[in-house]
Amino acid sequence: MEYVNAFLVGGSICVIGQIIINKTKLTPANVLVLFVTLGAVLTAIGIYEPLVEFGGAGATVPIPGFGYSLVKGTFKAVKSDGILGAFTGGLTATAGGVTAAVFFGYLMAILFNPKTKP
């Protein structure tokens, strides 16, 4: 059941993205920015958390999940450290992901070369 929920929630988030791409002139970069910001705002107003509880990876793997982690970490840090937490909490919670993106990104770029599209 967990897997079905992840599939449904993840798939639906992607469909929303696809409709935005096809219906507007937004570029992929714009859509990613929009979604991460939406994820952060929806978490702040308490809408994203239930989605994560229901969908699991279906809600955390898509890019709004990154916004979710940022805001959740920020809330936790603000509770324990006060205003400083607003500046440390987000990246502390997502440190693994960001570092992985930098490191694996660099590694793959060194190992492989781009190929012309057929």
């Binding site: 791409i21 992929p28 781009p114 190929k115 012309t116 599209k117």
Partner: peptide
């Protein structure tokens, strides 16, 4: 050249866009 024009005007070759 497709590949030299893409990188200057559009997306990197391995970018997964439509």
């Amino acid at each position: 050249h497709f590949s030299s024009a893409e990188r200057q005007y559009r997306f990197p070759l391995e970018s997964g866009n439509q």
